[in-house]
């Protein structure tokens, strides 16, 4: 259960990145999971070279690496194709995703690479649950990111404009919102967040792989579909829920069913609520 929250919080961070791109820019950013993957390696680099610098520097490097790839993606694929058919950016970002995966496999090798031990593996007893320091750190980092996103979209002027673009981009533009700039910032924010979460996940499992994005990406995508894109917080809650369901399925049924659980949830929810649990904007 607690383990589910830990993994769910990671799904939530990746899912929010998907949701921001889809809701605000109408872009299905299939490169997002691989931006996450690049962040994992970008954090690994300084951590392996100078382990004394610790998690903080690794996290910053992960964020910077992901942000950089996000920036390149936005300039080359997303911005030129924004406002065109959804399929165009979908294909474009899918191409970037394949390039990132194979490019990284070429550099780092196709097999998983050991991640430096930035945090001890020690257990902590918190009331009835026992979590490792790594799990707790991962959970804390992800939840902090989610809280920051939520505060941003609700409390700041740019955040309100972001939600305004999500619902009515034309009206937002006519009220002085520079839609292109906020869209760019949204992609950079989503990418940087993914980079931070990636370093923390790499530390949690002690390994990094060029193909790690696929698993997180698929789950995160499911979370967004289940929640609908009307409320970002809805996506967060669903992601945490799916993490818990997965860990319950692993514990009580079978670990081989774990990855299927999210898809059963998806089918079930979309059958009864095609716009997702929390509703979606008309596109």
């Amino acid at each position: 259960m607690a383990n589910g929250l830990v993994i769910g919080s990671t799904y939530a961070v990746v899912a929010i990145g998907f949701a921001l791109a889809f809701t605000v820019l109408r872009v299905i950013n299939f490169a997002h999971p691989d931006i996450f993957m690049v962040g994992m390696f970008a954090g690994l680099l300084p951590a392996a070279q100078w382990p004394a610098l610790g998690l903080g520097v690794a996290v910053l490097a992960g964020a910077a690496g992901s942000c950089l790839v996000g920036f390149a993606l936005e300039r080359t694929v997303i911005a030129p194709l924004r406002g065109r058919d959804v399929l165009m950016t979908l294909i474009g970002t899918l191409g970037v995703a394949i390039a990132l995966q194979n490019g990284m496999a070429l550099i780092a090798g196709p097999d998983p690479v050991a991640y430096p031990a930035l945090l001890p593996r020690r257990f902590l007893d918190i009331g009835p649950v026992a979590l490792t320091v790594r799990q707790l750190a991962n959970f804390a980092i992800c939840i902090l990111l989610l809280i920051l996103v939520s505060l941003y979209v609700r409390r700041t002027s740019w955040g309100r404009a972001t939600r305004a673009i999500a619902e009515r981009p034309d009206v937002a533009a006519a009220f002085g919102v520079n839609v292109g700039r906020i869209c760019q910032f949204t992609i950079l924010m989503a990418s940087s967040m993914a980079g931070v979460a990636a370093v923390s996940v790499g530390t949690l499992y002690g390994s990094a792989s060029a193909f790690v994005g696929l698993l997180y990406g698929l789950k995160a995508f499911v979370c967004m579909l289940v929640a609908g894109n009307r409320y970002f917080e809805g996506v967060m809650v669903v992601a945490l829920g799916i993490g818990i369901i997965e860990s319950l399925v692993t514990g009580y049924l079978s670990s081989s069913l774990r990855d299927a659980a999210a898809f059963f949830v998806l089918i079930g929810v979309l059958y009864f609520r095609p716009n997702g649990l929390f509703g979606s904007y008309a596109t």
Binding site: R160, R163, A164, E167, V171
Partner: peptide
């Protein structure tokens, strides 16, 4: 130049106050 669009076109999931704040975004 400001606009009162056909059919209102408010930001329906935002509060009244936030709609007005966005009116003063610029």
């Amino acid at each position: 130049i400001a606009w009162v669009p056909e059919g209102r076109q408010l930001w329906s999931t935002l509060s009244v106050l936030d709609n007005l704040r966005l009116g003063g975004f610029a």
